[in-house]
Design a protein around this nucleic acid. Structure first.
Length: 311
RNA sequence: GGUGGCAUAGCCAAGUGGUAAGGCACGGGUCUGCAAAACCCUGAUCCCCGGUUCAAAUCCGGGUGCUACCU
């Protein structure tokens, strides 16, 4: 089945173009955004508005309760079933979002059958190692020297996950060549929206202002009232973590604003770096705040060529 | 006009004679179960000129700029 992927860094305009594509190609949108899929996080995650969602059917937006965290594996399973369903109804599935790992999970035949994360287990290992990254690394090396070689000794999170898998039965961590194997059911087209870096950063700044004006602080307070703390996923997104810190430390919200801008810029840069590695990416540079009809026209040409060919 | 202080990377900043810490930003990168996460990599010869010395960002003299206080 044909699956269209639309991606790009945060604040580049994905929502707008995805909706237009859905309208023009009789499509439905499956989000690939690790924050927008949660409920209650509307303003800070820049979810498509109700009006926007009325213009095109969106899946995996506002669906999951932040109390029951969702991971790549869950995402892969859920998104694949939506995609199959959409295609089964004769419509075009349009995956739109900027969470690179989630896109990988759909694009490639990635295997998430390994035992899932067990926080307690990792905590225990971390303590057994005296919370010393070097000891964790040694323990990993004893189990699988190649894995120890591949993971940086400071990256505690990754080392613990590797140890977890190895101590739960895997003799050796796979070399993960599956990201070279496209998921066989899909004939996918990857389109990446891009903008001049300065323009992107300017859009980010403006978006942060807009989000704050729209009531991010209120949203965070209401999440707090629902019992969410900084340990919950709902408070770990950019925008949420900065505001909750300011609130709990009694610092002015302007300080949070500056941090949100910075963290969003960093995020956008990392997204761009991630996306660069797709050799099959069709980059479409966008310009200006208005809908870029010219760029959209080029996008349509790319899609037309893709639709003509097979499957 | 006088007196004192300061002048080190885009920003903050350590270093008081032995050949430039650190932080932030910017840029680059890794990526298989919280990914809006976690982690990694990258930059200067120290305002200018002259002097002392084997050796100066560090001492001396002169300039320039900023700053504080005074008149």
């Amino acid at each position: 089945m044909k699956v269209l992927f639309l991606t790009g860094p945060t604040a580049c305009g994905k929502t707008e173009y995805a909706i237009r594509l859905a309208q023009d190609y009789n499509g439905e949108i499956v989000s690939a955004d690790s924050m927008q899929l949660y409920k209650y996080m509307d303003i800070g995650s820049a979810k498509p508005t109700p009006e926007e969602r009325a213009q095109a059917k969106h899946w995996l937006v506002d669906e999951i309760d932040p109390k029951t965290p969702f991971n790549v594996s869950d995402y892969q399973k859920t998104a694949r079933s939506y995609i199959a369903d959409i295609a089964g109804r004769g419509k075009l599935p349009i995956v739109s979002g900027g969470t690179g790992l989630y896109i990988n999970a759909l694009l490639y035949d990635m295997d998430f059958s390994a035992p899932k994360g067990d926080d307690g287990f990792r905590q225990r290992v971390w303590q057994e190692c005296g919370e010393d990254p070097r000891k964790v690394h040694e323990r990993l090396r004893a189990l699988d020297p190649d894995a120890a070689e591949a993971i940086h000794p400071n990256n505690v999170k990754r080392m613990l996950r590797a140890i977890e898998r190895l101590e739960h039965g895997e003799a050796k961590l796979a070399a993960f060549t599956d990201i070279e194997t496209p998921y066989p059911d899909y004939d996918s087209l990857l389109i990446g929206l891009d903008r001049d870096r300065a323009e992107l950063y300017d859009r980010i700044n403006r978006r942060v202002d807009k989000i704050l004006e729209a009531g991010l602080e209120e949203e965070v307070r209401s999440l707090m009232a629902k019992g969410f703390t900084s340990k919950d996923i709902a408070m770990k997104g950019i925008g949420y973590k900065e505001v909750i810190d300011c609130l709990s430390e009694g610092r002015p919200i302007e300080e949070a604003a500056e941090l949100i801008r910075k963290n969003t810029r960093h995020y956008a840069r990392r997204q761009l770096i991630w996306l660069r590695r797709y050799p099959q990416m069709h980059w479409v540079p966008l310009q200006g705040d208005a809908f870029d009809e010219e760029a959209y026209g080029r996008m349509k040409e790319t899609i037309a060529t893709w639709r003509k060919n097979g499957r």
